[in-house]
Structure formats: structure tokens, C-alpha cells
Design a binder for these strands. Structure first.
Lengths: 324, 324
DNA sequence: CTGAAAGCGCTAACAA
DNA sequence: TTGTTAGCGCTTTCAG
């Protein structure tokens, strides 16, 4: 691969002049510019991004931290992030942390050594202290890391209560909740939204809430236990779609029908929710938009050194399908 | 962030000595080594990967080319690739090409400028000429780019005929096929496997094959058309799981039952196939293993400059579930 | 065993 | 308007 030196030689100018036309910065005579451009074309020259990085201490690269790309919420998010960022000339490094602090730490270290420009964080383990320590632009998704850092959230609590209220309006009397892990803020909020609607009802007991862990297998087991303990349950609000699908499987396994015997509502609006039979009623997040806004915010912070501290809160939407 | 110079100063040695202990290369006295290590620890020093890249012309980074990470086959693959590579100190850049040659070209250019070390290609557009032009280690997945380049394949044809033979054994008489796009080699192979089993049967006509395009919406439409044209169809072999799910939806829409009226078999074994009702019978690929072997092969080529030209062919497995 | 110095390819003062 | 030059932080000869 040709270097800037060769381009300079071919064009009969200095490397500084080549650099000037490359970056369209400083004075260059029309004639010199022409000659440089011709040399660039002839040599099929491309500036070396690594050399540039070394000098500028930036890399046009950002890191995307997700718990696990296999979890169906994240591919859609990753797609949005990658689309937006690559459109602006950035490259995306994928990191699966499994919510492990050690893995996350290792990724951060590697990326800092590569002069990464920023981070989009969809995990729940990264702390404000780490961000401060590495002093790197960060935008979080679905969670507020600290009030100094921007975050893109959705109306988790409101969405959850929407779901439960909708079930009530459909005539359901005993609504259970399959919650997500308590270390995940959105699970806590969704549970709060559920409690807001039914927490004061006479029939309500804590045991109408079971741990689904945002995981299909665990949700199946929990649902079976739940239904055995409370045969009066006629609706389940699951903390996410994967959990909801687990609930449906469990209900079928017990020989009952969805939605006739038990209605199910999920949360997230992942594509999976359309692929099942019955199709899942769910509180849909604008997943792609989450990724887009996060990316745009990060780019703004990086390129304009504007330190945004906004907490964006995006609306969710009830999508009624066959499971209710 | 501290640099090698500061470490050298703190340790009272030259940068060359620090570099020697960093890379464990060349002679260093025990005493000097100790002092350098202490300085490194005190300063919390980490070598600058960019500077190293500039000199070595490698970056401990590889590119992963997929058509679309949202397509449920690819997250599992990406996960395997990322797991394996990060365990070996490599970083993974995610590229969604949408099978567009222009996008792919743009990604390649960006990555070459960053001294990327290799490529894992799960798309169908990259040509041998491009690989030669950029002269970069490449491993392909699910497709042979050229006989000079290593590829990790699965038994597409064999898997397809397994599926169709299984349907016959189950007593199905009229088996249709929902094929994938003809520019995708695996779709061609799977179709060939189907034809191998039923192509010579007296009832067979070309019109028992419809274009599903590996896409749910298109598969729904094609299935409806197929079933209207041939009401005698009692089984469908879909080219992939997404297509199969579309077929199931279409069958339901026509008021028929799976598997009673029509049995369905998919291909891929993505997690989605377990999440549906009825759960999908499918020909499962060892997706994670595909990614693992591809990554290991690439690492071998990069680190040992061994130019592997092997075509690995992995077995597939029939998983019988509720749709048959 | 160790250090000085050149150089990877680029950018940005600074001087002309 | 242009060129010279000093780095960015690292690795690797080459002398000693």
C-alpha cells in the first residue's frame, strides 16, 4: 500500500501539502491540489488510519457492550448502532460481557489501548467510576449510569402498567407477573409498574410474582409453579418477550389454552414475538430508535465535545395480538 | 496514560529494555526486569496498541462480515466468533453488508486502512478477486469462496435429503419445498437435496417448489399460493427455519393444522425453532461450532502464516419436534 | 546485557 | 502558498 510519502513524490510536493489536501485544511494552490489528487488516484492511495490514530489519539471506532448478542433484543439494537455509526465513518467493536465485571474490564482495557472513541453500553454492570477512570464518552441504553452521563431509556414502568391495565380491561381478574432479575433496573421498574396497578387489589399477594429471570427455561418452570400454586390465575404479564414465550409454553404444557384460559402479555417487541403461535401481545420498545439515538448522541459528544447529560425517555407501545 | 518512555525513566533503563520485557524478547538482566515490572505496576502502564500496530502492521482485530445480524442465524455465529477470538486477544468488528457489494467494499476499505488481520465471511458476495487484491487472510462460513481459501461448510444437500426422506417415512405423500434465493449457494444445495429424493417421483412437478427467499413474509405468501395450487400437499420442507415458521403461519391462516394436515421441517436449528408452537422439526447446523472452527482456522493462518485451504464439512442433525 | 537511533505513516507547528 | 521538521508510542537493528 502506498504511503503519503510516495504520493508526495509522485505529485512533486511535500507530504505536508498532501496532508493538506487529504484533510482539506490550510492553503493549497489549485494546481498543487490537482496534482496531488491525480497522484492519489494513480497510486490508489488510502490514508493509513493507524498512523492517523497514533497522532490524533482517536480511532473512529466505538465499542458496543451488550450482555449477549444471542439474546434477541440485542441484534436489533446492534444493527441500529452499526447502521448509524458506519454511516458516519465509525467502526463498531462487538463485546459480549455476559454481565461479568471481569469480562467487561478486559474489553475496556483492550479498547482503551486501541484509542477507542466512545462506548455504547447496553449492559448493567458498568459503573460511573469506570467511565470516569477511563475518561471516555459513554451513552447508556435502557439504564442511567449516573446523572452526569446521557442515557436512552424507555417508559418501563408506564409500559408495564399499561400492559396490566389492558389485561384488566379485557376482564382478567388474577394477573400474575413473571419478573426479571433484580439487578437489572428495567426489571425493577416493570415490576413496579405491575404493582402500581394490582398491588392494592384485595386478592393480591407477593406470591403472584415469580422470577422468570428473562430466560425461557426459568420462565417455564416458574410459570408451572405459579399456576399450580394459584389455579385462579387468568393472565400473566411477563417482564420480557422471551419470558412470555416461556409462559406460553408452560401453559400449553399444562394443557391450557392461550388466550382462552390464560392471557399473556410480553415486553420488548422483539421480532420473535411475531413468530410464535399464538402471536404475542406485547409492549413494544422502539428498539431500532434506541440504538439510533444512542449512536447519534455519542457522535455528537465525540465530535463536538458537547457533554450531553440528557436522559432521553422513549415511549412504548401496546401491540395487541393473539395471546390476549 | 503512561507511555513506554515514562516507564523507562522510572525504571532507570532505556525504552528498548522496557520493550524487551514487555515482549519477553532478547536479553534482559533479572534486576532490570524487576525494576521495569515494578515501574509498570506503579504507573499502571498498558502498551499502546495503536503505536504497536503502526510498526507491526497488524492490529489484533478481525472483521466479521454478515448479511444482517438481525437474521437469527447470525447472532449465534457472531457469538461463537467473538468468544473464540476474544479469548485469543482479538477484537471483532461487526459489519452488516445486506449482501450489497458496495457496502461490503466500503467496509473492506475501512478495515484495510486499520490494518485488520483477517476476515470471517458469512456473506455470499465477497469474491476471490477481492481477497487477492487486499491480500488478507480469509475464512468463509457456509460457502467456498475459492479452492485456495479455507471454508467451513455443513452438509446442506445431505441434510435436505434427510429431511425429505424423514417426511416420507412419516407417511407424507406430497412434499413441497420452500426454497431460498438462488444466489445463495446453500439454498441451491438444499434444493438439490430435496430434488434428489422426490425429483423422480411420478407426482413431482416443478411447481411443488416455491420461492421462500429465506424470509418470513415471502414464505407466508408463497405457502398460501402453493397450497391453493396443490391442495394435496401434506408436507413442506422449508429451506431454513425462518421460512418454515412462515409456512406454519400460512398453514394456520388457511385453517389447517400442523402437523395433522401438513407437516413442516425447517433447516438451521436456530433458537427460534424451539420458541414456536408447535416447536419446529429441523435440520440443525452446529452453528456455534461453525464459528469456533472458522475462528480457530483464521487464528492459525494469521499466527503461523500457515495457509490452510481445507474445506471443513460439518455434519447436520435432524431434530424431531412437534411440527412433524 | 543495554542503549541510541531509525522508522512505521501521519499531522501540525513553524519558518520561509 | 509551501516545505521542513518534530513528534505520536512502539519495535528493532546495530554498536557497544
Amino acid at each position: 500500500m502506498a504511503s503519503i510519502k510516495e504520493v508526495a513524490k509522485h505529485a512533486g510536493v511535500s507530504v505536508a501539502t498532501v496532508s493538506r489536501v487529504l484533510n482539506d485544511k490550510g492553503y493549497v494552490s489549485e494546481e498543487a491540489r490537482k496534482r496531488v489528487q491525480k497522484a492519489i488516484a494513480n497510486l490508489d492511495y488510502r490514508p493509513n488510519a493507524v498512523a492517523r490514530s497514533l497522532f490524533k489519539k482517536t480511532s473512529k471506532t466505538i465499542g458496543l457492550l451488550v450482555p449477549d448478542i444471542v439474546n434477541p433484543f440485542f441484534p436489533e439494537l446492534a444493527r441500529a448502532v452499526e447502521d448509524t455509526l458506519s454511516r458516519h465513518g465509525y467502526t463498531v467493536i462487538l463485546c459480549n460481557t455476559d454481565e461479568s465485571k471481569e469480562k467487561e474490564q478486559a474489553y475496556l482495557e483492550m479498547m482503551m489501548q486501541k484509542y477507542i472513541d466512545g462506548l455504547i453500553v447496553a449492559t448493567n454492570t458498568l459503573t460511573a467510576a469506570q467511565v470516569t477512570k477511563y475518561n471516555i464518552p459513554v451513552v447508556s441504553i435502557d439504564r442511567k449510569i449516573s446523572k452526569e452521563l446521557p442515557g436512552i431509556m424507555v417508559e418501563n414502568k408506564k409500559g408495564a402498567s399499561m400492559a396490566v391495565r389492558f389485561l384488566k380491561k379485557k376482564g382478567r381478574k388474577r394477573i400474575a407477573h413473571l419478573r426479571g432479575p433484580s439487578y437489572i433496573p428495567n426489571a425493577v421498574e416493570r415490576c413496579a409498574g405491575y404493582l402500581e396497578v394490582v398491588g392494592e387489589e384485595p386478592w393480591f399477594k407477593e406470591s403472584y410474582i415469580a422470577e422468570g429471570n428473562y430466560d425461557m427455561t426459568m420462565s417455564i418452570e416458574s410459570t408451572i409453579r405459579l399456576l399450580n400454586m394459584h389455579p385462579d390465575i387468568d393472565a400473566i404479564f411477563a417482564g420480557n418477550d422471551v419470558s412470555a414465550i416461556g409462559a406460553i409454553k408452560a401453559i400449553h404444557k399444562l394443557g391450557k389454552h392461550v388466550p382462552r384460559d390464560i392471557a399473556v402479555v410480553g415486553f420488548d417487541g422483539i421480532m420473535l414475538s411475531e413468530a410464535t403461535t399464538p402471536e404475542l401481545t406485547t409492549i413494544a420498545q422502539p428498539i431500532y430508535e434506541l440504538g439510533e439515538i444512542a449512536s447519534a448522541t455519542l457522535i455528537k459528544i465525540i465530535e463536538q465535545q458537547a457533554d450531553d447529560q440528557t436522559l432521553y425517555t422513549l415511549p412504548v407501545q401496546l401491540i395487541e395480538r393473539q395471546s390476549t
